[in-house]
Write a protein that binds this DNA or RNA. Structure first.
Lengths: 179, 179
DNA sequence: GTCTATACTTAGATAGAC
DNA sequence: GTCTATCTAAGTATAGAC
């Protein structure tokens, strides 16, 4: 992969995360890159192709996780979700939060959506024969390893090993039925 | 407040939530309303004014909650956050997730941002003399009453009283130090 | 209160030179 | 690989009639 192409992806990651996909123009990207808009088209077919290239990695990682989820004990599954979210924090936020990004990806029917992957993981956490209670607890645990982790990172906090273990333990407590 | 004005706000709420603020055009809104674009300008000074009108309610509700937070026991605070998030679900998602909405609001320095309110609430939940551990647990509890609740609603689940109590209990468990 | 018409700007994208 | 120049479409917004 060429150097310029990678630079474009880096810039796009940052700008998309900051203002969203729709609100970021190719002019914005070209300006930061120090080139003209036209130059971008040598590296990508369209604006949408830039987004596609960005999100394919975290999306496949999460899709694989969802496929393997049923074979993992809940604690290991939560740990895997937490680590994946940390590793791909910026792109994962984009995928999960920005409505214009979601809408662009939903237009491609061949690919699993972020919402579908989320639903699968929560369903596995809710266990076989899920009840309203176990489903609620699954959502709570999932929000802890995903949203709480991202929130800490977004606030500028470092997610060191102590914090990571604390979050994981909180998620496990949330998942287990109360006394 | 006039009938048309309220209709515009309802349509904008739906479209902004679905595709984001930046990706929704005044043409989109006018089309659904069954009028021309120009008609919108009789009711609002600008596109941004529509967004401002929409988010002012949930933003002030959450700001008040943050101001009163220190006087509430943690469980009651979590319950209040949960109920506020449920009551204002769509607008709250917009405020919390859409980057273009956030950027528009951040431009107005006189108003507290959603991120600031979030930070305040988490800080209160982390207690006096917060540690890395108590902060992590605060984030976990906060993500449970906010994100998990919204996720259940977004999936089309009904947040009945049983589910509400289950979520709240999970958040309290997440907040308390582990055994 | 709503319309048509239009001004002005920017968007994404392409053509062709270098 | 990158440029300048340009196309077309769409965006927000305004003017003025009804």
């Amino acid at each position: 992969m060429s150097d310029t192409r990678q630079k474009i992806l880096d810039i796009a990651t940052e700008l998309f995360a900051e203002r969203g996909y729709a609100a970021t123009s190719l002019s914005d990207i070209a300006e930061r890159l120090g080139t003209s808009k036209a130059a971008l088209y040598y590296h990508f077919r369209s604006k949408g192709a830039i987004l596609d290239a960005l999100v394919s990695e975290p999306l496949t990682a999460f899709t694989k996780l969802a496929a393997a989820a049923r074979d993992l004990p809940p604690r290991d599954l939560l740990a895997a979700i937490l680590d994946t979210a940390i590793a791909m924090r910026t792109l994962f936020e984009l995928l999960d939060k920005d409505p214009s990004t979601r809408k662009h990806l939903d237009a491609d029917a061949t690919r699993a959506t972020s919402a579908q992957v989320n639903a699968t993981l929560v369903a596995v956490l809710a266990g076989p024969d899920p009840t309203a209670g176990s489903t609620a607890r699954a959502h709570a645990a999932y929000a802890t390893v995903k949203n709480a982790a991202l929130a800490i990172l977004a606030q500028g906090g470092d997610l060191d090993d102590l914090t990571r273990r604390e979050l994981l333990a909180a998620a496990v407590r949330a998942l287990e039925p109360g006394a």
